[in-house]
Amino acid sequence: MFDGFLNDLKHMNKRQFLYQVLCFGMIISSALMVWKGLMVFSGSKSPIVAVLSGSMEPAFHRGDILFLTNYEEEPVRVGEIVVFKIEGRDIPIVHRILKLHEKSNGTIKFLTKGDNNSVDDRALYAPGQQWLEKSAMVGRARGFLPYVGIVTILMNEYPKIKYAVLACLGLCVLLHRE
């Protein structure tokens, strides 16, 4: 099988090889542009996230996928489920808004809590931080799809799978002539 791939590669001329590389580039670009398109459409930096913990059960389970929007003009309300980022943590958190303070100039401060946690999130925030501000918000949960995110969880927990899958796909596309 692999022999055949190499054979293909051997018999390519300059233009065919360049086209091959461009095809590979376009597959990656298409994925990228769909993602960027979703960003523009939803207004959120990461329009789709996977739930990594059970802190929001029974609303969301580990492995669910959430669709987020982050429209500036929509007011934030208590009870909404938001995804936010905390300084010093890489992974965003999905929790519900418990308390909210709104100023007349539009700035807000809010406190969050996981449905399945017994206390609010102040222990999770950066040391000394009591409230979250609008800038910390990544988006509001608008819809979800169960189980799909399990793949993401698996790939995050066993990075070797991720690299193996990526390497296989890359080789296939690069070596197999269009």
């Binding site: 233009r15 360049l18 086209y19 461009l22 095809c23 580039g25 376009m26 990656i28 670009s29 298409s30 990228l32 542009m33 960027k36």
Partner: peptide, 22 residues
């Protein structure tokens, strides 16, 4: 080669646009 070259040109342009966006 012009027929192929035009296709390569369009493909390159698409990849460049994506790269620029990134």
């Amino acid at each position: 080669f012009s027929l192929i070259d035009y296709r390569l040109l369009i493909c390159t342009f698409a990849v460049l646009v994506a790269g620029f966006a990134l």
